[in-house]
Each structure stands twice: as structure tokens, then as C-alpha cells.
Design a protein around this nucleic acid. Sequence first.
DNA 1: GTCTATATTCAGATAGAC
DNA 2: GTCTATCTGAATATAGAC
Lengths: 189, 189
Amino acid sequence: MVKDTKTALLDSAEAAARRVGFDGFSYADLAQDVGIRKASIHHHFPSKATLSGALMARYARRMEAACADIDAARGTGGARLKALVQLYRAALGDGTQLCLCVAFSISRDHLSADTLREVTQFRGITLQWLQTVFALGGSDGSIHAVQDTQIEAASTLALLEGAQLAARTQHDLGRFDMAVSLLEKRISS
Amino acid sequence: MVKDTKTALLDSAEAAARRVGFDGFSYADLAQDVGIRKASIHHHFPSKATLSGALMARYARRMEAACADIDAARGTGGARLKALVQLYRAALGDGTQLCLCVAFSISRDHLSADTLREVTQFRGITLQWLQTVFALGGSDGSIHAVQDTQIEAASTLALLEGAQLAARTQHDLGRFDMAVSLLEKRISS
DNA sequence: GTCTATATTCAGATAGAC
DNA sequence: GTCTATCTGAATATAGAC
């Protein structure tokens, strides 16, 4: 089955945004990557702002699905938290990419209000999910020394995003692993 | 005393880069801000790559000085760590700015090799300093449950940078405070 | 050191043929 | 849906007068 053009464009744009930020790529780059002319892109995404909104919306939906998948596959809070750490690690790819949400945080002054709402929603979903995970992990004993779950969620998201930055700055996944190792020590196997 | 043009340009460029990233501002923006014509900027910084290098070099030197100041003013590891957290918090300004190092992490593929070296050096300085602080805080009892100092340093830097991202994404300093509150709880007053 | 003027390249975007 | 052709504005950068 062949990818339709719109999906191909979204895929290409997402990879570019996560590598060089939203201000760092152009329609010309996408056109070359996908194999159509740049004018044709406007048929699918009339403006770059439209594209940014579609990108972030798809990303947020994917995150919701990923969290649901983790919930279905893992029973304890600790196992779920471990899975999320792995998700953020995998998002680094070979160490050149970031989570789209982190990449958009920098370019945020050039994003549409629509897209900003999507970014906020993405963060909200993740934080909410993390809170539940810490509550579960605290009561089932799989995460050590759980304190206020809202604070745990905020700290963990910051740690994961910061660990991505560290890894990406040096193109070295080991930096991510080192930054999250203290968190992982709190999870019982 | 009046600021010389070169310093005014560096100040303006730094603020812009920390607000919208290195790809997010132009010489025209700087010219308007500083009050000269954009062609004149090239006299001080022939290319934007030169500017990025100068920016990061100045930033790294300032960080070294700030760490030295903290060491001179605070005796315990805990007090020094608290001071660094405040430094990162203050760097947010009104919640629209990031640490230059974080901002440059996103635009990194458009930076010169020279500038990238400066970024790496900045991270190295900060990590090294943090390691010493955790070693001190562990032995003087002002930081609770200190483990491997290299890992503590990496985790803390990631947390601080991630906390900045969280605050800046929502233009809300409270997000920073919440993300770092677990870390601060480990410091005895 | 700063200016005007200009070169060049590239950005996002549109019109209209096929 | 994709193309060619084109527009408009803005980017970095240079030449040369003052």
C-alpha cells in the first residue's frame, strides 16, 4: 500500500520539525523529500500555519493512543512509567530528533493560536496520564517514595524533555540514559 | 556610560535567540532594536555564524563567572544548588525566554562548528560544576541521598532545562517551580 | 563606523493550465 | 491533484560613499 501524499507530507514535515525546528525547514525541503513541486503542497496545506496545526494534532492523537496502549499492556505503575521513558528515548531516533512538542516550544512565537492550543493539549494529556501512573505506582508499590502526584508528573515530564535536549545536543543517546537513570532506580523490577 | 554598538547588538541578539531561537530573528530585527541599519551590523559580525559564536562564547564565560560567584557566596552544596536553580529560574525572565543553550539546541543544525563547540563547552562547565556541588552537598549533609555525582549532575541539568521548557511553553513560571520542587525538597535549609 | 544602494537567494503563497 | 510560472517580501551579504 502506497502512502497518500498528505500523509507523506505530514511525515516529512514532522521529521524536519523535530530535527531543525519549525522555522528550520521550508516547503521546498518538503517538496524535494516527497517528490512533488512546492506549489502542490499548498493544495494540502494552504499555509505553513495550517501544516503546523495538523502536525501537532496528529502528534497529540498518537500520544493518546500510545498511552492507552501502555495501559493495556502493563499492569503496574512502574512498568507503565518505564514504558513512557522508553517512548521518549525512542523518539530521539539516532539522536538527531526531538519530541515535536519540545521542538515547537522554541518556535512557539511563530505558531498559530490553533497550534499552540494543540501543544498545550498534548502537555495536558501527558501530565494527566503521568499523574495516574504515579498514583498507581505509589499504591501498588512499584514506584518508590511517591509524593504529590501532580509534582511527580511535572518533574518527570521536565526530566524526560530535558534528557532529550541533552542527548540531542551531543547526538549521544547515552546522555538521555544517564539523565533518566535516577528516575528508573525508583522503579522496582 | 553608553553601551557600545557591539555590546548592544550582542544583547539584542541574545534576547531574540532566547525568545524565538537562532533561526527566528534576522539582522533587520536587530537593526531596528539597536537603532542602526542592518548593513552596519556586518561591520561587527560579518556573518550570522560569527554572531552565533560570539553569543555563545559570551554566554559560557558568564556562566563560569556566575558559578564562581555562587561558590564564593555560599558555603554548602545545598545552598549552591539552590542558587543555581534560582539562576535558571531568573533566566526565564517573564516566562518568554530560555537559556541560550536550550534555544541553540533546537537550531543546532544551522550553527557553525565553532558555535557547537561553545555549546558543548557550556554544558561541560555546568555539569562539572554540578558534580562538585553534589559531592560537597553529600559530604556536608545539605543535600539528601546523594548518589553517583555524575548521574546527579546529568539529571539535574536535564530537570532544569526541561523545567524551563515547561514554563516557557505556557508562559507560566509556576510550571518551573513545580517541576523543580522535588529537587529542592532534597536540600536542607 | 555607519550609511545608501544593491545583489542574490530563498521564503511562503497565488493564478491558472492540464 | 499536480504542474509551470510568477508575485511579493524578506533573508544574508557586499560595494563603495561619507
